[in-house]
């Protein structure tokens, strides 16, 4: 019982990491995507490099970097929790940006041309014609990414964030038992079961057109 309460508390922290990361990275991904698609070359190069680094190095390494690097540079670290949020946000923004970009590129040029000939403004075309189709296109890919994020939150334990995985691990070694780890696994499973059901519903709701 005691254990279950502890694990539930850890789940709370995991969900905090999870939701804060999404709240920051889903919109930030748009900004990164815009930077990736801009005609201003220097910006595009920087954003390109940023995406390459975020996708090309281990998330674990990035977590350690954002926790330890400020200490060596500024003499002070971010709180563990916020260092984790920062690392997850920057990492996931890069992935979301690439998903947004592929979603944009999947829109046929004819949609823009028809909009132009009908007299729609650029803003109207983007928000009413392009964006709804992009969102529909990218929902499955976003779903995959969100499911990965639920599992990735466990990495926050490496910089000492006391979340679900960390609590389960500590309890396991304290009690010489794999049961806490197993229970944590069930919790992760349930979280992702809910996430995937939510995405199923969203996908179905958007299936009214093809």
């Amino acid at each position: 019982m005691q254990l279950l309460l502890q694990l539930l508390k850890g789940t709370g922290v995991t969900l905090e990491v999870f939701s804060l990361t999404l709240i920051f990275s889903l919109p930030l991904g748009f900004v990164v995507c815009a930077g990736r698609m801009t005609r201003i070359l220097p910006i595009r190069w920087i954003v390109d490099l940023y995406i390459q680094i975020m996708r090309g190095t281990p998330l674990l390494l990035q977590l350690l970097f954002f926790y330890f690097a400020p200490f060596y540079i500024f003499g002070a670290s971010l709180p563990r929790f916020w260092a984790a949020i920062l690392a997850f946000t920057l990492n996931y923004s890069a992935y979301f940006a690439e998903i947004y970009r592929s979603g944009m590129q999947a829109i046929e040029v004819g949609q823009y041309e028809a909009s132009k000939v009908l007299g729609f403004t650029k803003a109207y075309t983007f928000f009413h014609i392009v964006l709804p189709q992009v969102i529909k296109n990218i929902i499955p890919a976003i779903g995959n990414e969100v499911i990965t994020l639920v599992k990735d939150t466990a990495l926050a334990s490496t910089i000492g964030v006391i979340e679900l995985f960390r609590i389960a691990q500590t309890a396991s070694s304290r009690e010489f038992s794999t049961i806490p780890i197993f229970v944590a696994g069930v919790f992760y499973f349930i979280m992702n079961y809910v996430v995937s059901k939510i995405f199923d519903v969203v996908e179905k709701r958007m299936a009214y057109y093809r």
């Binding site: 046929e108 132009k116 000939v117 007299g119 709804p132 057109y209």
Partner: peptide
């Protein structure tokens, strides 16, 4: 001026949504 001319495309380009 653009509003005075309409264009019908080979590939229709209807808005699917």
């Amino acid at each position: 001026i653009g509003l005075k001319v309409g264009l019908v495309f080979q590939s229709f380009n209807l808005f699917p949504h």
